[in-house]
């Protein structure tokens, strides 16, 4: 069992999960008829991309990029810190994603108010 690389299995699991989330979300956006389902698909795509970024920044046996001891000079004696840049980017992306979802859902409410339906195949007129 020693010759199986643990990192390889972890990579298949995490990258596979993120690619799977992106594809599932894309399927929902393209195939579903209900507008709320489409917004759910968008947020699933978001989740997949966030997981992909964090997974690329991960370093095995690394610690989170927060210095804990007082006066510690730097990362010492073989301990590694994971890459902080993708984490900062994902932090921004989650907050912006919430804003996008909220605006999209308020547009759904507005469309429902006019057409009395939220299914795009039942919205006949383009004008509103």
């Amino acid at each position: 069992m020693e010759n199986i690389d643990i990192n390889q299995i972890l990579g298949i699991a995490v990258f596979g999960a993120s690619i799977g989330l992106i594809l599932i979300g894309l399927y929902a956006v393209l195939m579903k008829k209900h507008l709320i389902k489409i917004v759910i698909g968008l947020s699933i795509i978001d989740a997949g991309i966030h997981l992909l970024f964090i997974a690329i920044g991960y370093i095995s046996n690394g610690t989170s990029p927060i210095f804990s001891e007082k006066g510690i000079s730097l990362v010492s004696e073989g301990t590694k810190m994971v890459d902080p840049v993708p984490q900062a980017l994902v932090l921004t992306a989650i907050v912006i994603g919430f804003g996008v979802t909220a605006v999209a859902l308020s547009l759904v409410i507005r469309l429902y108010r006019h057409h009395k339906t939220a299914r795009i195949d039942q919205i006949k007129t383009l004008k509103w």
């Binding site: 990192n7 990579g11 995490v14 690329i56 370093i59 730097l74 890459d83 902080p84 840049v85």
Partner: peptide, 24 residues
């Protein structure tokens, strides 16, 4: 092609990547 968990930020004392610069 991307190796999961590989050390991608390099030497922290002499930073060559952005992440290493921020950490140091």
């Amino acid at each position: 092609q991307v190796e999961f968990g590989a050390d991608r930020i390099g030497d922290i004392e002499n930073p060559t990547t952005v992440g290493a610069y921020y950490l140091s």
